[in-house]
Computed example of a mutant assay.
Amino acid sequence: MILEAAMLQVKQGMEKEYEETFREASKIISSMKGYITHELQRCIGFKGKYLLLVKWETLEDHTVGFRQSKEYQEWKKQLHHFYDPFPTVEYFENVQL
């Protein structure tokens, strides 16, 4: 399992519209092969800052399966105009303790 973590900065004054649009766009990502779950967290200390966490079965399920799909084009169309700057995305794997 891979955890995708994206730090998102939404343009000032667009937060409510973003959250509503994200709810709808969630249907897109949750339908993709390899998708496990996702959550969107709103930052308490910085207005417009969000953390998106998505669990994928494999890295390629996100980087190839989702990012190179027609569904991603729709995701991008719905959400990317809210961000400034463009999100930073990093990937993590569980450390067995």
Rank of each mutant, 00 (worst) to 15 (best):
N94Y: 06
Q12L: 07
M14L: 15
T88V: 11
V89G: 00
K16Q: 14
K76V: 00
S31I: 02
K76S: 08
V89T: 05
G13P: 05
Q78R: 15
S69Q: 07
A5H: 03
E60T: 01
E90G: 08
K27F: 15
T37Q: 07
Q73N: 00
F66N: 04
S30P: 04
K77G: 12
K33T: 08
E15L: 02
Y91I: 01
Q41M: 08
T37K: 11
K76C: 01
K11P: 00
L3W: 10
C43H: 09
V10F: 13
S26C: 02
K55D: 05
Y72A: 04
R67K: 09
I36K: 09
K70D: 04
L79P: 01
K11R: 15
V10P: 05
Q12R: 13
G34W: 05
A6K: 01
M7W: 12
D84A: 07
H62L: 00
A6D: 04
G48S: 03
E60P: 01
S30I: 08
K76W: 04
M14V: 06
T37M: 06
L8V: 07
I36N: 07
P87A: 09
P85Y: 06
I44K: 14
E20D: 11
E19P: 01
K76T: 00
F22R: 12
T58I: 02
Q68N: 03
L97I: 08
D84N: 06
L3P: 03
M7A: 10
V10G: 07
F92M: 04
T63S: 15
T63D: 01
V89S: 03
L79A: 04
K49F: 12
G34L: 11
F46V: 14
Q78P: 00
K27T: 15
F22A: 14
K16M: 10
L3Q: 11
L8A: 06
G45D: 12
I28D: 13
E39Q: 15
M1Y: 09
V54P: 02
L52K: 13
N94R: 14
V89I: 11
L51M: 15
M32Q: 14
E57Y: 02
V54H: 02
Y91A: 01
C43G: 08
Y72K: 04
E74T: 07
T63P: 04
N94V: 09
A5L: 08
G34H: 04
V89P: 01
Y18L: 10
Y72D: 03
S30F: 08
E57W: 00
L52V: 11
M1R: 10
R42E: 15
S31K: 03
I44N: 14
Q68F: 00
S31C: 03
